[in-house]
């Protein structure tokens, strides 16, 4: 049961972290220059609207009371009204979250599938010219600004070759009966392709390098030598025993990468006009739509923290030394 307990402790720790981030967020938006009401109230709101918001968020109260009102509102999912859209921030965020998650997960799945295979292959080719040529290329992909890679892909495959659309999630004037119909349409997928590849090319470096170095370590282990002494096939030695062990930390890093990728999304979504949380954050900040910016930031933070927890959980499930302690 100590496993359950340690997981509980970790959950509590991360809940505390979330609380701290929420507090930082509160301070960040209250301490910014200008009117303290500006965090929630746009001058163009009607008098009644302003009145209602002042009451809901206690904006006429001292800062510490505002803070508790803010926490209480958060717990009920109340994030205020967007200045630009005149709709509740929460509605806007739930609308955009799926787009961001689809982009994030599809790109990471591609990145990990490629990275794991290529990493294992490079470990196998250790000391060859292939490896010497591949490693700097991989490091260079990690050194690329993601948005620049997006620009290059966009210029080549959209503007020059015309193979893919330049931005958005679907062509103008198209509509679908359901979200499922939209997400499975070739229209949506062709819009997804370039931003997905941009993020995938950037992200494959981590699983690749991790897989490679793990493989190099694992292949020195005694049980690999034993597998050879047993006369097992190269497949069994390298894949069943080598890769299976090397994969453990790589799979854990997936969750961390999700959290990390959300941050990269901010720029790539902007390049491809992909209506997701990251682009929304940038636009909201640029347009001084503070409630929306705050909400988008918070949502990203929640996912980042949740993924840290998931990483711990994944590790304890995938490694029998922990799951069968």
């Amino acid at each position: 049961m100590s496993k359950f307990k340690s997981f509980l402790i970790r959950t509590l720790q991360l809940a505390l972290v979330l609380w701290a981030v929420v507090t930082i967020l509160f301070l960040m938006f209250r301490l910014m220059p200008g009117n303290p009401l500006a965090a929630y109230i746009d001058p163009t709101f009607t008098a009644e609207q302003q009145e209602a918001l002042i009451r809901q968020f206690g904006l006429d109260q001292p800062l510490w009371r505002q803070y508790f009102t803010y926490l209480a509102n958060l717990l009920q999912g109340e994030l205020g009204y967007s200045f630009r859209y005149r709709t509740p921030v929460a509605d806007r965020i739930w609308l955009l979250l799926p787009n961001t998650l689809i982009l994030t997960f599809s790109s990471l799945i591609v990145a990990y599938a490629f990275g794991i295979l290529a990493g294992a292959w490079l470990a196998w080719r250790r000391g060859t010219r292939t490896e010497a040529a591949a490693l700097p290329v991989v490091l260079a992909t990690r050194a690329m600004p993601e948005f620049w890679l997006g620009m290059v892909l966009l210029a080549i495959f959209s503007f020059s070759l015309g193979w893919f659309p330049a931005g958005g999630t679907r062509s103008a004037g198209t509509s679908y009966d359901s979200l499922w119909a939209l997400y499975t349409s070739s229209n949506f997928l062709s819009h997804l392709f370039l931003p997905m590849m941009t993020l995938a090319i950037y992200s494959q470096g981590l699983p690749l390098l991790l897989m490679r170095s793990n493989m190099l370590d694992v292949m020195k282990e005694d049980f690999i030598t034993m597998a050879k002494i047993k006369g097992l096939s190269p497949f069994a030695v390298v894949i069943r025993h080598g890769a299976r062990n090397a994969l453990l930390p790589v799979m854990t890093s997936f969750a961390i990468s999700v959290g990390y990728q959300l941050q990269g999304n901010v720029v790539v979504e902007s390049v491809f006009s992909w209506p997701g949380l990251g682009r929304e954050l940038v636009n909201a900040v640029a347009a001084s739509d503070y409630p929306l910016a705050q909400g988008a930031f918070l949502m990203i933070a929640v996912v980042v923290i949740a993924m840290n927890l998931l990483a711990d959980l994944l590790y304890s499930i995938l490694d029998p030394r922990i799951s069968h302690a």
């Binding site: 005694d222 049980f223 034993m226 597998a227 025993h241 299976r244 062990n245 490694d319 029998p320």
Partner: peptide
């Protein structure tokens, strides 16, 4: 082997 711990695959 000398160390069966390291010679058995942990997973």
């Amino acid at each position: 082997p000398q160390s069966a711990m390291n010679s058995l695959d942990p997973v």
